[in-house]
Design a protein around this nucleic acid. Structure first.
Length: 265
DNA sequence: ATGACGCCTAGAAGGCGA
């Protein structure tokens, strides 16, 4: 089975590219971020015609997330229960897992698709909101992992793990996406028993998931790895591969992010 | 670097992203 995440930076603009990508990469679940459209504008029919179900949590202008899937989503939850938020950043649902349990009983996987706050600048109000949001996410996930031991948290985290995720570590030191406070929170998610799928496997050096539109960022590979797929303990043994697909970043009018894919046995 | 690009709401130019 394959699961993927992609910040599309406007689904209105990127829909043809998403459909093309799904045709070439038939994943079981694709989490989308930064739809930048309201629920009434979501192109359910276009995904249906391509053979995919879809559930969304939209918002005008900013944010907005969705789960595109072969099987229908079950037990859909929007945003973080227990954390009050005006923004549409999280959508969760359960999907059938092909790998059955030891007793042969049907099993499911819990998918949490998330668009983490950007934070703008350390010390700003938006940065404080980002830290509060991260704490809210962690408090909720702690119990969510008990209810759903087979869980994937994937999306645009807007946080790098360490210098290996940054094209210019010195220039980005203590800058947004690279501060100790953000990395502490990311580490705290790992401490819940989640594993970074990317680093379970050998990866090319300077593997990034985002490149600035400006100054030929992609061509010069001046990027950061800020889109992540985290696997719960119960799923980690099933992981077979994880990769970043840079192909759509080469399109005309691309998203600034590339999709990340994990394959499970 | 008050920059570079792209998308959004606007109905011009500014907010925001990362």
């Amino acid at each position: 089975m394959k699961f993927a995440t992609w910040n599309v930076n406007s689904l209105t603009v990127r829909l043809p590219q998403v459909l093309d990508w799904l045709a070439a990469n038939p994943v079981d679940v694709l989490a989308l971020q930064e739809l930048k459209l309201t629920d009434d504008k979501f192109p359910h029919a276009a995904f249906q015609a391509a053979g995919y179900e879809s559930v969304c949590f939209g918002q005008k202008t900013y944010n907005g997330v969705a789960l595109i899937s072969r099987a229908p989503a079950q037990d859909i939850v929007r945003n973080i229960p227990g954390f009050s938020d005006d923004m549409a950043r999280v959508i969760s649902a359960s999907f059938p897992l092909a790998t059955s349990a030891a007793d042969g009983a049907p099993s499911s996987v819990r998918i949490v698709g998330a668009y983490f706050p950007n934070g703008q600048e350390p010390g700003s109000d938006k940065f404080e909101y980002k830290l509060a949001w991260l704490q809210g996410l962690r408090a909720w996930l702690r119990t969510e992992l008990v209810t759903h031991p087979k869980l994937i948290l994937m999306g645009d985290y807007n946080i790098t793990f360490d210098d290996a995720d940054v094209w210019d570590p010195e220039g980005m030191r203590d800058q947004i996406h690279c501060t100790d406070e953000e990395r502490y929170e990311l580490g705290a998610l790992i401490a819940l028993g989640l594993a970074d799928a990317h680093r379970l496997f050998p990866q090319a050096p300077k593997s990034y998931s985002w490149w600035d539109y400006r100054d030929f960022g992609f061509k010069r590979n001046r990027g950061m790895r800020i889109d992540h797929i985290l696997l719960s303990q119960a799923l980690k043994p099933l992981a077979k591969a994880c990769w970043i697909d840079k192909t759509p970043r080469k399109n005309e009018r691309p998203s600034d992010h590339a999709p990340v894919i994990v394959e499970l046995a």
